[in-house]
């Protein structure tokens, strides 16, 4: 299990990284926690890897009045350790803490996870749930897409082959906002078999109940306020919104949604 031959370029900044991605055969890489195994199994065989972890702007945190921008090459461990300012009332570290294993978190990055778009990935679910958007740099310049438009399917995004994710923009959440994230894993550190997140932010009038780890992009359930306020049955909502899942996966998803909603109610972090 050794990778096929490839060249490696260590990009000094984001613009240089984008320039090196112009060939057909180039791919950006950050923590290499998803791409690395694919290379070693020879399932991915790029001729050139462009390492973006040395780009200063991808390692930066920018605090704005309404949002915080997180550089794409910040690691899960940096979120877990509270080394970064949190746009939320302390929700990010518990999410990061439960991503895979510490060795993976030491190297894996938030931007890499989102760009890889594994449907069961924690950042894919939670950044969609938290209403984040993705800053992208390409040969035509910078652009920004909401998570819900960025992730287009399983392992599929709106990112062009010559573009990179530079940052994740996360709206600030006040103390009255509530959040829960519940996932089901066979064992600690494995990818989720089902997950759900719930956001209730009255100050911004933003409510969301999201079903994730469903082998495609996360799905926001309709009428989230009715679900959050207990006026609608989460099982029925899941049945209606996720007809493509097998009955077994749908039942598991209903459990995830119910438990995420219950965790929001009790305030117990899930």
């Amino acid at each position: 299990m050794k990778a096929a031959r490839f060249d490696l370029h260590l990009a000094a900044d984001a613009a240089e990284a984008v320039r090196h991605l112009q060939g057909d055969d180039a791919k950006p890489v950050a923590g290499s926690q998803s791409l690395g195994p694919m290379l070693n199994l020879r399932l991915a065989r790029p001729g050139l890897l462009v390492d973006v972890t040395r780009c200063a702007e991808l390692r930066a945190v920018t605090e704005e009045a309404e949002d915080v921008l997180y550089g794409a090459a910040l690691t899960h461990a940096e979120f877990e350790d509270g080394a970064l300012p949190d746009a939320t009332p302390g929700w990010l570290a518990p999410i990061a803490r439960r991503i895979a294993y510490r060795a993976v978190r030491n190297r894996g990055t938030i931007g890499g996870s989102i760009a890889h778009a594994d449907p069961a990935a924690d950042w894919v679910a939670t950044m969609t749930g938290l209403g984040a958007s993705v800053r992208i740099l390409g040969p035509e310049g910078a652009r920004e897409l909401p998570m819900a438009e960025f992730v287009t399917g399983a392992l599929s995004t709106a990112l062009g082959p010559d573009e990179i994710v530079t940052a994740i923009r996360l709206p600030r959440r006040g103390p009255e906002a509530r959040w829960s994230y519940w996932k089901f894993c066979r064992k600690v550190g494995e990818f989720a078999k089902a997950s759900a997140c719930v956001l209730a932010d009255p100050a911004r009038d933003e409510y969301r109940v999201l079903a994730a780890a469903i082998e495609r992009a996360p799905v926001a359930l309709p009428d989230p306020r009715a679900l959050i306020e207990g006026r609608a049955d989460p099982r029925e909502a899941v049945e209606a919104a996720l007809p493509f899942l097998s009955p077994e996966r749908r039942a598991l998803q209903a459990t995830a949604t119910s438990r995420a909603l219950a965790a929001l109610e009790t305030g117990v972090p899930a």
Partner: peptide
């Protein structure tokens, strides 16, 4: 065919 599919008990289990 990889440890992502073949689950082994770890410390947490």
């Amino acid at each position: 065919t990889t440890l992502a599919e073949y689950l082994l008990p770890g410390a947490a289990e």
